[in-house]
Computed example of a mutant assay.
Amino acid sequence: MWRSIASNTLTLLIVGLFLLGGLILWGQRQYETTGPLDAAICLRVERGSNMKAVSRDLEAQGAITNGMIFRLGADYDDKAGRLKAGSFLVPAGASMEEIVDAVTRGGASTCGTEIVYRIGVTRVTAQLRDLDPETGQFAEVAAFDPLAEDEPGVFAEKRAEPDTRYRIAMAEGVTSWQVAEGLKAAKFLAGDVDEVPPEGMLAPDSYEVTAGADRAALLGQMQEAQQLRLNSAWESRAEGLPLRTPEELLILASIIEKETGVPEERGAVASVFVNRLEQGMRLQTDPTVIYGITKGKAVLGRGLRQSELRTRTPWNTYVIPALPPTPIANPGQASLEAAADPDSTSYVFFVADGSGGHAFAETLEEHNRNVAKWREIEAQRASD
């Protein structure tokens, strides 16, 4: 009798162990396998939350099939206590294991709200954007000009949320004064801007920052990036350029940046100025004259007057026979590269062609024909 009881007990124990093992294997597969989510979602984890609350939210959004397996898997991976606050992108089909990794890894939020300060040539724009998890694209929620308008309430609300991300987007061709003023208007930054950085020495780029980041430190980061770009362009420059120093290359790059917005033209524009320098011709470029008037602290907003083209300033290249003494804006990488390695041409003239680009010429006669065409286009546009 006792043998029978012991035998039956042992059999039940073995069966139980097999069932338990099978259950564990099943749970592991559920934890690691592709999840049921048809489309990506943005999962927000509040500060002070826990895995139980997160698993309930995921179940409610159809991202996981079993909250208990989700929590047990997090415990087994020793990640249950590493939950981070923020907004996290959960892709379609994400496994429970992948979701646990996303909400415990740390670092910046991967979806949700982003405030972008765009420092452009004509204006500064503060933009509030939300990521659409299904498309992976940001959609604008609100925008305003922080230099001319009061901040909408929604911006202050979003700045109070801990998982809001911030970005400073600096356009190519802006002046250092414009950048400094733009950063002063960014309320999520801290610290003073005691002096405007040297013209041309800020790298146009998109900079991700954190709330409370120091303005002066950010400007220092921009300067370091531009110095690296300038050093690289100077070291790889073509032989025989009429440029004596990296600073002269930077000046030329800034003029190229302001003369054309067509990427394919930069090399040709650079060749015109290099050819003129080699032949002892004045550069005769309007953006330098404008800089002599505004010093980079305003947009002229009108055409140049004949009197301004004749007035001597250190930047008026219709009067001075060489490069101006400083850059006239902050050039981007492509303009630096064009200045360092211009196209090989015989062009010494260019004028707008009506398409957004320019018509180039080797002779004054050809240039005059191009100018006449441009005047016709201007007249037609005026009459229209």
Results as ranks from 00 to 15, higher is better:
Met1Leu: 15
Ser7Phe: 15
Asn8Gly: 15
Leu13Asn: 11
Gly21Pro: 09
Leu23Pro: 08
Leu23Met: 09
Ile24Pro: 06
Ile24Arg: 11
Gln28Leu: 13
Gln30Asn: 11
Gln30Val: 10
Tyr31Thr: 06
Tyr31Val: 06
Glu32Ile: 10
Thr33Glu: 15
Ala39Asp: 15
Ile41Pro: 01
Cys42Gln: 04
Leu43Phe: 04
Arg44Ser: 02
Glu46Met: 05
Lys52Ala: 14
Lys52Ile: 14
Ser55Cys: 01
Asp57Gln: 10
Gly62Asn: 11
Ala74Gln: 03
Asp77Pro: 03
Asp77Ser: 07
Val90Arg: 01
Val90Ser: 02
Ala92Glu: 12
Gly93Ile: 11
Met96Val: 08
Glu98Ile: 00
Ile99Arg: 04
Asp101Ser: 12
Asp101Leu: 11
Ala102Gly: 02
Gly107Asn: 13
Cys111Tyr: 00
Thr113Arg: 07
Thr113Trp: 07
Thr113Met: 04
Thr122Asn: 14
Arg129Ser: 08
Asp130Pro: 01
Glu134Asp: 10
Glu134Ile: 13
Ala143His: 06
Asp145Phe: 09
Glu151Asp: 06
Phe155Ala: 06
Ala156Leu: 15
Lys158Ile: 12
Ala160Asp: 10
Pro162Phe: 12
Thr164Trp: 09
Ala169Cys: 03
Met170Leu: 08
Met170Ile: 08
Gly173Pro: 02
Gln178Lys: 03
Gln178Tyr: 05
Val179Gly: 02
Val196Phe: 02
Pro197Leu: 08
Pro198Glu: 14
Pro198Leu: 13
Glu199Trp: 09
Asp205Arg: 10
Glu208Gln: 10
Glu208His: 13
Ala217Gln: 10
Gln221Ile: 06
Glu224Lys: 15
Gln227Ala: 15
Gln227Pro: 03
Gln227Asn: 14
Gln227Glu: 14
Ser232His: 14
Trp234Val: 09
Glu235Tyr: 08
Thr245Ser: 14
Thr245Pro: 09
Ala253Asn: 05
Ser254Gln: 07
Ile255His: 04
Ile256Thr: 01
Ile256Gly: 00
Glu257Pro: 00
Lys258Met: 03
Thr260Val: 07
Thr260Arg: 00
Glu265Arg: 11
Gly267Pro: 03
Ala268Cys: 08
Val269Ile: 06
Val269Cys: 00
Val269Leu: 03
Val269Tyr: 00
Val269Phe: 00
Val274Asn: 05
Arg276His: 01
Gln279Gly: 09
Met281Pro: 06
Arg282Gly: 05
Arg282Ser: 02
Gln284Asn: 12
Pro287Glu: 03
Val289Trp: 01
Val289Ala: 01
Val289Gln: 00
Tyr291Lys: 13
Tyr291Val: 10
Tyr291Cys: 12
Lys295Asp: 10
Gly296Phe: 00
Gly301Lys: 08
Gln306Thr: 12
Glu308Phe: 01
Arg310Cys: 02
Arg310Pro: 01
Thr317Trp: 03
Ile320Glu: 08
Pro331Gln: 09
Ala334Ile: 00
Ala339Cys: 09
Asp343His: 06
Tyr347Pro: 02
Tyr347Asp: 01
Val348Gly: 10
Phe349Ser: 10
Phe349Asp: 11
Phe350Gly: 01
Phe350Gln: 00
Val351Lys: 05
Val351Leu: 04
Ala361Gln: 10
Leu364Glu: 15
Leu364Gly: 13
Glu366His: 11
Asn370Thr: 02
Ile377His: 05
